[in-house]
Design a protein around this nucleic acid. Structure first.
Lengths: 347, 347
DNA sequence: GCCACGGGTTTTAACGTTAATAAATCGGCA
DNA sequence: TGCCGATTTATTAACGTTAAAACCCGTGGC
């Protein structure tokens, strides 16, 4: 009963069916205003009837554009708790689909040289319209490469070089740790330490700043801070060191859930109760944060908004929209759970 | 210094450079045996020199094939611990890249009707070569749809309908829970319960079978079993019920890490120590399993092998390889952590 | 010396689309 | 009626690739 038993329906078939030329069908689909209302209606009916869908390969060949947006998946899993990038990929894909784009994945072994080579290959082979970068850092080679090629892109992560030309979306880590710090201070804590990342990390520096601001705002001491790599074990050991101090912290604001989970393990080992004895906060709202007992207080990044905004920015770029590149800084949301509340010893 | 400052290098340019026709270049690239060795060498040098990469859109248009493999990302995150599908996506992408394919993501709201519609659209618009399905179940509409369209596909998850024609790769859940059961029995446990999923789930049924086999092999009782939805809260409540029993279990083999984490929370609430008082095992080796204290004993799925095998199968299908569809059943690996070991009370 | 053969190469045409351009149609007005 | 300009539609050509067919030329058989 289907008008077209199998195979692809082309413009020409629709055109024949509607008694017009192929170009008119193309116009009816892409530039409706160029076509007389009556004709357009007839054509759209034919499109509907035959189940026509434009062939993207042909369009890509003709237009040098493919509605494909490329994104590189993160390298092999580490022991990190955070799955932010997985969540991000999902959000980005959903937003892309909604806007009529498709996401094409790119693979490269670790290292920005590999990554750039993978981008270049993809670009030559397929007519990818734009790229999405994630986890940008200072002097990011990928940014300069894409810019030199003249390829539209937007990044999850601000342009740390003060590069005004790049569209980006980011989450305000500083505001996040400041909120966490103020939250534990409001629980009565006066000795609040920070467990963060080494100085090279721009993101880590921001999060540390937030803690500093939070402490200074309440005139608390800021001498208790340690920077370690982002692993559970590093967090655990650092927590032990900080709790062995002569005037130990009663609250620890951490730069990540991974570190915070290390702290929780250290507390467990010392027979201390999270929340009741030492308040702990993380960052990223990893699935694990909700699953441990007690739950881990953490900061949730509005990842779906990030995805939508990035697609939006790319859409503007591709539309040749002359409006300035967009810079969007979003606030993370503090999720309060047992690890930062006096609460009951159990639960 | 680059021979081609910008823009795409085409077959014709390479052909001119090498002093041959475009078709000969095409042959040198795709069917080397059709071209005289000397010519081929000259052409490949030109390809190298000019940095030629075939344009996939043009190729797709001409050949109706695109080296694109489609995969649908999972729907929005639930509260589940398992990130198997994220890991899988990464593994699949790596394998695809290695074999010269690209992964294109598909988005659909929950529900197999939406999903099928999304597949159909993608198929019409782009010339996707093949699909990868995940989490197949009995009477899977997606399977029948893809089959009726004649589209090559392979699935992560066996064909539960006994459909011999489908290529699949799966992990043997039954062997997994059997191993977990035997492991806790080897620790001296005689009352081993099972916390699983409702009967509708084929995967859940398999995992339950494994526990049954493990118990029967040692002539242990098999009366302690409960089936609940896959959430932490359901696991927690079920654990309380099972521990309230007149002859409570001393070990609980769970169908997922999520349920097992619920059990851990229940133990925490009752002041019982995982491992020492009640042994607990999960399934999937989620990141959380390694991060909680004590660590959760669980089963690791060899997800990278799954990815490679699926790409391999698809490669065979696309090559028109007449060899039978492949069915690969892999064994999960038992990862022993503190939650199933008597160990010390702390740690 | 003619022809058949076959490896090596080129020519032709087509995949489905759309920008640019050309052609047709129509209403309005002198 | 005839002509102009505006609107609508049709024609042409091209995007980069490759299957199929045609072509070219040296070998070997008779």
């Amino acid at each position: 009963m289907a008008p077209v038993p199998h195979g692809h329906v082309t413009l020409v078939q629709v055109a024949r069916w509607a008694g017009v030329s192929a170009q008119t069908v193309s116009n009816a689909v892409n530039n409706p205003e160029r076509v007389a209302p009556a004709t357009r209606e007839r054509i759209l009916a034919a499109v509907e009837e035959l189940g026509y869908e434009p062939n993207l390969s042909a369009r890509a060949l003709r237009n040098r554009s493919s509605s494909l947006i490329a994104f590189k998946t993160r390298p092999a899993r580490t022991d990190k708790a955070s799955l932010l990038m997985d969540e991000f990929l999902y959000a980005l894909n959903a937003a892309a689909a909604e806007a009529g784009y498709h996401l094409i994945l790119c693979h490269a072994e670790d290292g920005s040289a590999n990554e750039i080579k993978a981008y270049r290959d993809l670009l030559k082979k397929t007519s990818v319209d734009a790229f999405v970068l994630a986890e940008t850092h200072r002097n990011d080679d990928r940014v300069s490469a894409l810019r030199s090629w003249g390829v539209p892109f937007a990044s999850f992560g601000r342009s740390w070089d003060g590069d005004e030309a790049t569209s980006w979306v980011d989450v305000d880590g500083r505001a996040g740790t400041r909120a966490a710090t103020e939250h534990v201070a409001a629980q009565g804590h006066r000795r609040i330490g920070h467990l963060g990342w080494p100085a090279e990390s721009e993101i880590g520096a921001e999060r540390r700043e937030g803690w500093l601001e939070g402490c200074r705002g309440r005139e608390l001491e800021t001498d208790l801070q340690v920077a370690v790599p982002d692993t559970l074990e590093a967090g655990r050991q650092a927590a032990h060191r900080m709790l062995d101090s002569s005037r130990p912290a009663t609250a620890l604001v951490c730069a990540s859930d991974t570190l915070a989970l290390g702290v929780l393990r250290a507390l467990h080992e010392r027979g201390l109760r999270p929340g009741a004895d030492v308040a702990v906060t993380g960052f990223d709202d990893s699935p694990t944060a909700a699953l441990v007992s007690p739950g881990l207080t953490t900061l949730h990044q509005p990842i779906d908004v990030v995805g939508r905004q990035l697609i939006q920015s790319i859409d503007n770029l591709l539309a040749g929209d002359p409006r300035d590149p967009q810079h969007v800084l979003l606030e993370p949301e503090l999720i309060v759970r047992g690890s930062s509340l006096p609460g009951s010893p159990r639960q």
